[in-house]
Structures are given as structure tokens and as C-alpha cells.
């Protein structure tokens, strides 16, 4: 049964869709009632047919009636809406816990054993609790097919949960505006049978093997703004970066020419606004001070050194 609602694939779908049908059903009834009355009056009492208005007497019972009935109806809507919402805030204790990192502008999912993925894999019929984390600005975690949405607020430990009831792939959107590539902050949730889930987990990489600069950058979302193949995204591409001559604008607005070296890359990561490459916007990249460890930054620099050869 889904009249107009999108495909549903979680434990919440039934109750939430019923709430929609209840409210929308009453809505449609009242819209039709009001419209029909308007048309009827306009036709019946048009001045052409009805020269003299009748000054109808006001009746208190009528007013009491049309205050009480709507009041009862809206309170019923409130109650049903609230009751069917409560389960959304009550994740079971035995749920699989996944940390969701929403950042400008991609999603990353971290499993309890440190494995990370950019697609959310979940086992069928098992409750999954998502702890939502943002390192930068507001995002919104939205899976239409599951009827769940919760803001990802920096500095706050928001969460949501679900139990997927149908195998398949479903959209994950970012629902809270987060800047330039908000509309592209997209991922998928893949619901798979438990056995398949286990084998996927076994093959995933563990988060930060701190020697590999490429993996560190992937895990920290650098590639949603910087490409490796020369494509211009929000930030400059890393292709041919090492040793390149660049014109930058310093924080006090002066132009300067620099050669990309270890110091410049470190500074770009820790204090991106100190020198902003000409043609790019300041304040887009945030500082990774305290987020990346010194040896991780070293690893990134080592990795980026190789970028010079790719010219």
C-alpha cells in the first residue's frame, strides 16, 4: 500500500505513512468542503440572481461548533503524529552502532571495528543506530525510503536509527543546506542479507593506516574538494601540485608568488586562509588543526610530493 508515498523499506514506514494518510485525508475533505461551499455561495447568491443580501443572524452554537470540531481534529492529529514519532527516538540497545560523518560534502560511515566505507552497508532486519557527527557545518541525514531525517549538528551528539526491512539500494541525501555542493552530498544505503554483510565488512579497509597519505585524505574528505586528475572542483586539483609556482593572496590581501613545498602544504592544511590561491574562495576549506595528527600531515605531504611527477 503506498498511495503517493515513496517506496518504503524500514520499520517506521507503515506507521508514518498511516499518519500521512490520516492527516492528508482530513485535509482533502476540508479543502473540498470549503471549495464547494465557496462555489455554491458564489453561484447561488450572485448579485444577478440575488439582489438583496439577507443579514443572517449570528448563532452562538454554530461558532462553538466550528471551534470545537477543528480543535478535536487537530488534537487527534497532534496525538497520532506524536505517538508514531516516539519510536524514532528509541533505538534498541542491541543495535549495530555506526558513526556517520557528514562533512562538506560527502558522507562517511565508520563501523565499530574501525572499518570505514562511503556507502552505508547494513544487514537486513537488524536495528542500526547512527551516531551523527559533523566536523564543520550543519548537515541533514535523510533517507526518504526509511522516512528518517535528523540534523547533523557540529558539537552535538545527534542520532537516529532504523531497521531495514527490504533488500536494495536507497538514496541518502543531505537535507540541511551546507554550502556550494550541498546538492551533491549524496550517498547510498545498501541493505544486504546478514551473510553478505559480514563478508563486505571483512573486505573493508580499516580507517587510517597512518602511513598512507592517499587513504588519510580519502578518509578526511579532502577529495570532495580536491581532485587527483586535474579537474577543478571547489579547491585546486592536486595534480602537478608539488613544486608548482602559484599566485596566492595572503590574509591581509596582498598578492604573492610561491612555490609549493612542504611548508606551504602544511600551512594550507593547518591555516588555509593564510594564503589562498588566486581564483579560489577563502573560508571554504577549514583548518585541520587538531583533526589531523602531525604524522598524518607528514604522510599527506609525502604523498603529495609524488604529485609533481604526474605533470
Amino acid at each position: 500500500m503506498n498511495y503517493g508515498m515513496p517506496y518504503g523499506a524500514s520499520n517506521f514506514v507503515e506507521k508514518i505513512d498511516k499518519t500521512f494518510y490520516f492527516i492528508l485525508g482530513i485535509d482533502i475533505f476540508f479543502l473540498i468542503l470549503i471549495t464547494v461551499l465557496m462555489i455554491l455561495f458564489v453561484a447561488r447568491y450572485n448579485r444577478k440572481r440575488h439582489q438583496n443580501a439577507v443579514q443572517v443572524k449570528e448563532r452562538t452554537w454554530l461558532e462553538v461548533l466550528w471551534i470545537t470540531i477543528p480543535l478535536i481534529i487537530v488534537l487527534a492529529m497532534f496525538y497520532i503524529g506524536w505517538k508514531n514519532y516516539i519510536p524514532l527516538r528509541k533505538p534498541p540497545k542491541d543495535a549495530l552502532v555506526v558513526k556517520v560523518i557528514g562533512r562538506m560534502w560527502d558522507w562517511q560511515f565508520e563501523y565499530p571495528d574501525g572499518k570505514v566505507a562511503t556507502t552505508l552497508y547494513v544487514p537486513l532486519n537488524k536495528p542500526v543506530r547512527l551516531n551523527l557527527y559533523s566536523p564543520d557545518v550543519l548537515h541533514g541525514f535523510f533517507i526518504p525510503a526509511f522516512r528518517i531525517k535528523e540534523d547533523v549538528v557540529p558539537g552535538k551528539n545527534n542520532y537516529t536509527w532504523f531497521k531495514a526491512t527490504e533488500l536494495g539500494e536507497y538514496d541518502i541525501f543531505c537535507s540541511a543546506y551546507c554550502g556550494m555542493r550541498h546538492a551533491y552530498m549524496y550517498s547510498k544505503v545498501k541493505v544486504v542479507p546478514t551473510a553478505e554483510f559480514d563478508s563486505i565488512m571483512a573486505n573493508l579497509e580499516v580507517a587510517t593506516s597512518s602511513a598512507d597519505g592517499d587513504a588519510i585524505m580519502r578518509n578526511n574528505g579532502c577529495y570532495s574538494c580536491h581532485s587527483k586528475d586535474g579537474t577543478k572542483l571547489v579547491g585546486p586539483s592536486f595534480k602537478g601540485l608539488w613544486g608548482a609556482k602559484k599566485t596566492v593572496i595572503t590574509s591581509d590581501g596582498k598578492k604573492q608568488t610561491i612555490v609549493v613545498d612542504e611548508k606551504y602544504i602544511e600551512e594550507s592544511i593547518l591555516d588555509p586562509n593564510a594564503k589562498v590561491e588566486e581564483g579560489y574562495m577563502p573560508n571554504v576549506m577549514r583548518s585541520y588543526k587538531g583533526v589531523l595528527k602531525d604524522e598524518e600531515i607528514k604522510a599527506i605531504v609525502e604523498y603529495l610530493k609524488k604529485s609533481g611527477d604526474q605533470k
Binding site: K15, I16, T19, F20, I23, L24, I26, D27, V74, M77, F78, I80, G81, W82, K83, N84, Y85, L88, G140, F142, P144, R147, I148, K149, E150, S175, A176
Partner: peptide, 15 residues
């Protein structure tokens, strides 16, 4: 009213 009810708001909020 759809937006005021909690259960339905969660789905259509920010859409």
C-alpha cells in the same frame, strides 16, 4: 498540519 505533526514532519522537513 502535515508539517506540525512530528511523525510526518520528519519526512518532509527541508524538502
Amino acid at each position: 498540519l502535515v508539517l506540525g505533526a512530528l511523525a510526518t514532519n520528519v519526512h518532509v522537513h527541508d524538502t
